[in-house]
Amino acid sequence: MLLATPVVLLLCLMSGSTGFGIPDLGGETGQSIFLLRVYRVLTALLVGAALSCAGTVLQALLRNPLAEPYVIGVSSGAGLGAAMAIVSGIAAMNSATLPACAFLCAIITLAIVYILANSAGRLSIYGLVLSGVIVSSICSSLLMSIVALSPTEEIQSIMWWMLGNLEISSLPLFGVSAVLITAGIAGIWIMAPELNALSLGRDMAHHVGVHTKISISIGLGLATMITAAAVSISGLIGFVGLVVPHVVRTVAGPDHRSLIPLTALVGGLFLASCDAVARTAISSELPVGVVTSIIGGPFFIAILRGRRKKGWIE
């Protein structure tokens, strides 16, 4: 795995819409193109790592194999924020306003879900999943009503945003997201022993001395923060956060101390490779969210079929 990393990264840097190979670094244009590819690969690594780690955490905390970064409403919250920014014209003012709106709405959505699930004084796991689904549906309906009522050009922007794109529009924004994501993943890694205990069940975790409510809240907060940061720079990219954690778990085992860094690495590399395909497959651009499922789906089905005995799958 560690040996494959530099090879995959090199291949990603060599592929771009202007042809395969390292661009001529002597010229100004070549340097600029190379720099753009570096940004894109870095963005893919960050976003992929963030989504897969968030998926791992949520699968552990919610003890649900279908949990993914978007399950508690982060995606529809962020989508709603982005659509409102596009329709109200805020997005056209500055390249940082759309991601900021998306981030803010994602955090607000999580806060609402958390308050709903926490209403009786005890944070309930089922409550989290259920209120997540309900708040998600409400946000999606609001989003769809915005789409239905807005003029054609804006629908296009909203739709493309929802399919995901790893091209960054401003460097400072990328910097902020990178810091948030790195800090979030580091925090999750520190929590690995608690995650191990919590994935055995809440009572079990309590018996081995874990403050379950605090740990669940912190884990949820970190997962949402990195998901929202990822979504705000790249839009909604599906599949990565759901499947990468399962695959890594079947191959590397369920110990979160090694699972977290490995998922981050695999998720990042997987998204970077998918983006390389998205940039080069046809003469213009394919949305990367489409490629993740089309390319990744069959690949991961093959892995899961070969390794049925471990992980969630019996």
């Binding site: 771009g16 819409s17 202007t18 661009p23 244009t29 600029s32 193109i33 753009l36 590819r37 493309w160 091209e167 940039r279 003469s283 213009s284 651009e285």
Partner: peptide, 11 residues
Amino acid sequence: YFEVSSEWVVS
């Protein structure tokens, strides 16, 4: 009409 990357424009 089609989508392009920054790289395409730069090159």
